[in-house]
Design a protein around this nucleic acid. Structure first.
Lengths: 154, 154
DNA sequence: GCAGGATGCCGCAGATTCTGCGCCGATTCC
DNA sequence: GGAATCGGCGCAGAATCTGCGGCATCCTGC
């Protein structure tokens, strides 16, 4: 029942289904069935299978941060000396405004994306991060692209 | 009908609703109604309103890139000389594996996140990007956090 | 060949959910 | 006070989802 790496080789119909549900997470089984040209039952079986095998992780509504009052976004890169990874984890736990955190190769250990209501809010968070490691902060002008994962060989 | 910036000040019930639907994008109206302690009709009215006002942008299934065959992820930062922004846009259009692209302040103009099947696949994309500007590529070890937007004052 | 098993698709019927609509109480404004 | 607006409520019909059982196809071993 745990996630095993794609038992089935993911045929063309699966890809179409994934693509459809990635584009519209609330699409009805009937709609999905129509786009992948299968019956509702078969569509459901395949969708459930993809969910079980954790090919489809979950469904989420995407909200507009500005509408919630976050007028600022930033990318923070952080260097951490030694193994203070626990400290990073602890900081993440208490800072929900760090909406994304990646551990990466290169000069910096972590790359994070942060939402903030204003400059002082941002500074509050970055200064907290600066207690863990040395950081570089860049503001985000614009989100140029934010796309679903493409299906191989397109 | 177009998106205006949150006509209503977003009361506590709205926040709860947003939070619920961000956690589970397929949650049923009855379920949502139960968690925010409102009738189904009222829940629906509020949800529709949030969608209309583009507070809730859309719903998406989130897929596991590895299950689709992408065993590599990378962060690419890019410097662009002069105004070659059109060129960036053009590259984005033909490279769906660039799943996210941000325009930022600082030394680099753009920060991108890329999925790739393997090293040669990654190199294909980065070399294409290198024709537009000078780039720095860092591989992603691990996604430490990937969270919904938090609701202010939590 | 052919019985047995497994797989994947189909469609049905009951349960659940969604939708459009009208009603009602509270608040505001003349 | 009366009228209008707003937000919530619940109903009834439509749409959707769910749990089955049936059927065709494809293997596999005898």
């Amino acid at each position: 029942m745990t996630n095993r790496p794609a038992v089935r080789p993911l045929d063309e119909v699966d890809r179409a289904l994934i693509s459809a549900v990635q584009a519209d997470g609330r699409a009805t089984l009937a709609t999905l069935a129509e786009t992948i040209r299968l019956s509702v039952s078969a569509t459901r079986t395949r969708l459930r299978s993809l969910e079980e095998h954790a090919v489809i992780r979950d469904y989420r509504a995407r909200v507009e941060p500005e509408a919630l009052g976050y007028s600022l976004r930033a990318i923070v890169r952080m260097k951490v000396h030694g193994s203070l990874y626990d400290k990073v984890t602890a900081t993440l736990a208490v800072q929900p405004q760090i909406v994304r955190c990646l551990r990466v190769t290169g000069e910096f250990c972590y790359v994070m994306e942060i939402v903030a209501t204003d400059m002082s809010d941002l500074e509050k968070i970055t200064s907290e991060l600066a207690r863990v490691g040395s950081i570089t902060t860049d503001l985000i002008y614009e989100i140029v692209a934010d796309r679903p994962i493409p299906l191989p060989h397109d």
